[in-house]
């Protein structure tokens, strides 16, 4: 046998591992795909850069262009000591992870388009690892972007009014919500014919959810019908709960609602994404 043929020689492998070790392999597969996606982020620094520039511009826009004209009325104004930036930043955090979720849909649409998912399907790996690895990597990216936005917020005058515990609880809520959204946008990405379409499919969904919410202005000043929507869609309670955790005010109801939204959405969105994954690319 030559050196080449030793490298090429086939080998009949044992049957797939037992149940016990398949859980270990599931974890390993998820971590392998997560790592692959994280490496990809570092190889396209432009993506991460422009992904961060947009939320920073939103901070500057609302802080310095619109901020002066927005009056925070009601009991909240007192807690915020009339600083709009303190009102604004929790909204920005949630908005940032909201728009960031689009990259989950773009990433999966791209994998599908380029045939990578096809290759993964022919490998003896866990089926769910492609999705879990993508949402995990996006979770890590969201931590990075969140930290960046906190720093930007501090630079423009934002200060936590409660305590470290409240701030960390708010951060945990924002990131949990980000992870939840990722699964929804995974389903969108797997339903899109290509990554460009995945992107344009995502914005009309996000826009009303983000802007018809208490993210930038209090809902009391919206027309009644819009108020009803703004407080009954997931971004409403998540923004209010984050704001309450970081800046004070009654937290319990908002946090309960926000956690319920995250849990409820995960129960729906995870199976939806898995279903789209099973179907994706199989029609021709």
């Amino acid at each position: 046998m030559t050196a080449d043929s030793a490298v090429l020689a086939p080998e009949l492998r044992a049957a797939p591992a037992s149940e016990d070790s398949s859980l270990a392999w599931l974890v390993s597969d998820v971590l392998t795909i997560t790592k692959r996606n994280l490496i990809a982020f570092t190889r396209v620094p432009e993506f991460l850069f422009f992904n961060s520039v947009q939320p920073i511009m939103f901070v500057l826009l609302f802080r310095y262009v619109f901020g002066g004209a927005i009056a925070i009325s009601g009991p909240l104004g007192m807690y915020l000591k009339h600083h709009y930036v303190n009102y604004l930043m929790p909204g920005i955090f949630v908005q940032t992870v909201g728009f960031g979720a689009v990259s989950t849909s773009i990433g999966l649409a791209e994998d599908l388009q380029k045939g990578l998912i096809e290759r993964f399907r022919a490998l003896p790996m866990a089926r769910s690892a492609v999705l879990a690895g993508r949402t995990m990597a996006d979770f890590v990216r969201n931590i990075f972007v969140f930290v960046l936005m906190v720093a930007v917020g501090y630079a423009v005058g934002f200060r936590v009014q409660t305590n470290v515990g409240g701030f960390l609880a708010g951060a945990a809520l924002v990131l949990a919500f980000a992870f939840t959204l990722s699964w929804g946008f995974a389903a969108i990405g797997l339903s899109a014919p290509n990554s460009e379409t995945a992107q344009v499919m995502s914005f009309p969904i996000l826009f009303p959810l983000i802007f018809a919410s208490p993210a930038f202005v209090p809902v009391q000043d919206m027309p009644g019908w819009l108020q009803a929507f703004a407080t009954r869609q997931p971004f409403g309670p998540v923004v209010e709960a984050t704001r309450a955790l970081m800046f004070g005010g009654p937290t319990a109801t908002y946090v309960e609602q926000a956690v319920a939204w995250c849990g409820g959405l995960l129960v729906v969105l995870v199976p939806l994404a898995v279903w789209r994954y099973r179907r994706a690319g199989r029609s021709g």
């Binding site: 795909i33 045939g115 096809e118 290759r119 993964f120 022919a122 490998l123 003896p124 690892a129």
Partner: peptide, 28 residues
């Protein structure tokens, strides 16, 4: 089995070595 498609279905953001390593790990 092994499959090589008519599109080179490899990740263009990874290096050659990282691609092979990933597929090896996914082959357990």
């Amino acid at each position: 089995i092994g499959l090589a498609g008519q599109y080179a279905t490899v990740d263009e953001n990874l290096t050659g070595r990282e691609n092979l390593h990933m597929v090896s790990r996914l082959n357990h």
